[in-house]
Amino acid sequence: MENRLIITKYSDQYYPPTPNNFTLFLRRSIIVQLFRFMVLNYKIIKIVVKGHS
């Protein structure tokens, strides 16, 4: 993200959203991610259960 200035304006790379520092913090925070780990496991288990007839 620190290199965003070198991205050529009007190229495909110029337009997509980039995470801000708070979002990056959330993605790396051990406490937040421990919680997300449990949530993601629950969601995956739901899909797994649905996938087996």
């Binding site: 959330l26 925070s29 421990l34 993601l40």
Partner: peptide, 14 residues
């Protein structure tokens, strides 16, 4: 509800 994409450290643990 069950289609998602989530980046983060938890994904690596998974």
């Amino acid at each position: 509800k069950t289609t998602m994409g989530e980046p983060g450290l938890a994904g690596h643990w998974l």
